[in-house]
Amino acid sequence: MTIVYALIMFCILVLVHEGGHFIAAKAVGVKVNEFAVGMGPVLLKKIKGETQYSVRLFPIGGFCAMEGEDDESEDERAFGKRPIWAKAIIIVAGSFMNLILAIVVLACIVFYIGMPTTTVNGFSDVSPAREAGLLSGDKIVSIEQHQVKSWNDITDAISKEKGEKITIGIDRNGKDLSFSMDLAKEEGTGRKIVGILPEVSRNPFTALEKGAESTWIMTVKMVEVIGQLVTGEVSTKELTGPIGITVAVSDSVRYGFIYVANLAALISLNLAIVNMLPFPALDGGRLVFLFIRKITGRAITDDIEAKVHFVGIMLLFALMIYVTWQDIGRFILN
């Protein structure tokens, strides 16, 4: 079942990516010959208009086959006949859709879990705050006379307090009140607490904002790691492939769907970033060739570009074999 879950996740992510290319191609008037889910022999197909929609045997990807994408075509609606801006939109659209998917999934996670507010909703078993006189519904406005605007401000201020007591200012039905209380230590972690539980807000706009913020943080981290791979600061032994992803899916399923969704967002963002790297055969490489050919004119033919991309595909296959071999040693043989 883990393999099935991993294949479903991967197919959805690839479908979103190729769907981006498909929607963009249709939007700028490029003829799409086939939109396929999976690879290999055709299992099911339906022709609608000028496009064949198909499901293929091996659920390991998919593709959007555009007229004149990899060869010369005299069709006026061929990919090669479109202006450079239209080609660029089509190329970038796949990664853009993966990026949007990551934001939406993370936003849904935030909305489901809820965002803690500064309003007290209840108290833990050990609660100096309750003993001091705080009530459910009190809104915390300050700690040690420092204004707080979020739940993180509250937890940070409490954990950084060096004394044994702390003063919390609250708004109770429009009245400003102040309470002094002892600090307790949480069992297990030892961190300082006052024993309050926050009221949770589920605002779709806040969730979307937090989803975008989390996606940006993850993007920065991923770009840093890619840079460290290039400079050698991070070893290629740290890379993982399909087997490693399957193991990660297995672990996520064990912990619950929130973890599965978070992993899906992470992989979707990874696909977006990796696909835009300026390497032959990847969307980023195709984008680079697009601008090079615009500058050099006919100096680089379709045949030359196709050969360069073929070399890129072979190198990517070699990398996939390498990381798969590593995964076998790491997750199967050990």
Rank of each mutant, 00 (worst) to 15 (best):
K149R: 13
T301I: 10
E50W: 05
H17Q: 08
G114R: 06
Y112A: 15
L177R: 13
F331E: 04
E305I: 08
G61N: 06
S178F: 09
G49S: 04
I113P: 14
P280M: 00
V311Y: 13
A299S: 13
G329W: 06
S178H: 12
N262E: 03
T155K: 12
I3M: 14
L263K: 09
A25W: 01
Q145N: 15
L269N: 05
T189E: 06
D70I: 05
I328V: 13
L106H: 00
S54A: 13
A25M: 01
A261F: 14
F123A: 09
H17P: 06
L43Q: 04
K31I: 08
L44D: 11
S252A: 15
E209K: 11
V249R: 03
G137D: 11
P280N: 00
D176F: 11
E131K: 07
L101G: 03
G211L: 05
L183H: 03
L316R: 02
V16D: 03
A129F: 12
F179N: 04
I196V: 14
K237F: 07
A27H: 10
R172F: 08
I267H: 01
W325Y: 12
V311C: 10
K237R: 15
F179I: 03
M314D: 02
M320V: 08
F35W: 09
A27I: 10
V247H: 12
V92K: 01
D156P: 00
K26C: 03
L229W: 01
K162L: 05
I332V: 15
A24L: 14
S159L: 12
A93M: 07
S150Q: 11
L239R: 04
V253M: 15
K160C: 08
F58I: 14
Y322P: 01
R82P: 02
S235A: 14
A306D: 01
L316H: 11
V308A: 13
A6V: 02
A65Y: 00
I12M: 10
F291P: 02
G244E: 06
P242V: 05
G195T: 02
K237D: 15
Y112S: 15
I143S: 05
Q52R: 15
R254I: 07
Q145Y: 14
S95Y: 01
M1K: 09
S142H: 02
Q145V: 08
G312S: 02
E144R: 09
L277C: 11
G80D: 04
G114L: 08
V200A: 03
D153N: 10
A93S: 07
I47N: 14
V55G: 10
I91L: 13
G133T: 08
